[in-house]
Design a protein around this nucleic acid. Structure first.
Length: 286
RNA sequence: GCUGGGGUGGUGGAGUGGUCAAACACACGAGUCUGUAAAACUCGCGGCGCAAGCCUACCCAGGUUCGAACCCUGGCCCCAGCA
């Protein structure tokens, strides 16, 4: 069976570095699963590492003012993975965007319903209770299935209404999940270690010209674009707030990934952690 | 040293006699998640308790009052201006 390797975990754990290491060992190619690194020109602040000698897919797919969501990601990544298999290589999906990683192997059944910007714009004026009421009329089951948090989340409610209004006419062709033998490697460390790494990384990005990149993009793009909501762009020039936002994000990622039971976790601050991972991958790969 | 302002939670900052464990914000903690996911959203956040509730709090010490974070006296500290 074809093999598919995932490297996941919170920010600043060195996922790409490990990915490159494993890619060389096992003749692999990296697919980045990162919701902000898909944007061209957003390089320094989002921390795009480009390890030498490794094929890496998934960076710079669109311009910052273009749409790119899970659906686009799946549409891009699945064929990319197929091609890597055809070349006889091992695809390594590397990324911290949990939802995107999940979508690759667990199909989203409403993924075929595209964004209706006109409708969204109209619905944005509605309060959460009003949206919920509307959803109840269109799709009572969906409305009933929402938990307390989502019932108060306008963004989620708008999408649910959008799906409900467009679903009928559409012949749902659900994406096929990738049939593969998968291994999920999770990278982590103690919180103090992770926090320290975050701070260090921000420092490095500042040295590499993060401020210049930020001011360039700020002039060029509207601040309400999804791409511009990337951590760093929102907080700069306040460096401390940037660091805080990175740490908060790190914790959110941890919350997501800790629920994924299949992940084999490795502590990046333990000694020879790369060797340990390599051993684990080897056992699975051969 | 003088004059004026001020000392409230992890932080900023409301509150100026009872309805205050203390608005609001931030930070922090725990979560949610099926086309914005580095997004959006929810809950918690003095102590004990499942809860009802109880206890300890608004620099310190006294005092006034049925009742004080809020009024008075003294002390300590901070800031601004003048010396």
């Amino acid at each position: 069976m074809r093999k598919l390797l995932f490297i996941v975990g919170p920010t600043a754990t060195g996922k790409t570095g490990l990915g490159a290491f494993l890619a060389q060992k096992f003749s692999g190619e990296i697919i980045s699963a990162d919701s902000r690194q898909v944007f061209k020109g957003m390089d320094i602040v989002t921390g795009k590492d480009r390890p030498a000698g490794v094929r890496l897919h998934g960076y710079d797919l669109v311009k910052p003012d273009e749409d790119f969501s899970v659906a686009h990601f799946v549409a891009f990544a699945q064929p990319a993975i197929e091609k890597i298999w055809r070349r006889g290589n091992l695809p390594l999906v590397v990324g911290g965007t949990g939802f995107w990683v999940k979508a690759l192997t667990e199909p989203i059944d409403t993924i075929a319903v595209p964004a209706d910007h006109h409708l969204r714009k109209k619905l944005e004026a509605f309060s959460a209770p009003k949206l919920l009421k509307l959803l109840k009329q269109l799709n009572p089951q969906k409305a009933a299935s929402l938990n307390a948090s989502d019932r108060l989340n306008p963004r989620r409610l708008i999408r649910a209404v959008e799906v409900a209004t467009h679903l009928q006419g559409l012949s749902l062709k659900v994406e096929k999940p990738l049939a593969a033998d998968t291994l999920l490697i999770g990278l982590t460390a103690s919180l103090p270690v992770l926090d320290a790494r975050v701070e260090k990384r921000v420092g490095q990005r500042l040295k590499s010209g993060a401020l210049q990149e930020w001011s360039r993009l700020k002039k060029k793009y509207r601040q309400d674009l999804p791409s511009m909501s990337a951590i760093g762009y929102r907080q700069l020039p306040d460096v401390n707030r940037w660091i805080t936002a990175e740490r908060q994000y790190l914790r959110r990622q941890l919350t997501w990934f800790k629920k994924v039971k299949e992940i084999a976790w490795f502590d990046v601050s333990s000694k020879n952690f790369r060797a340990k991972v390599e051993t684990r991958v080897k056992a699975w790969y051969t």
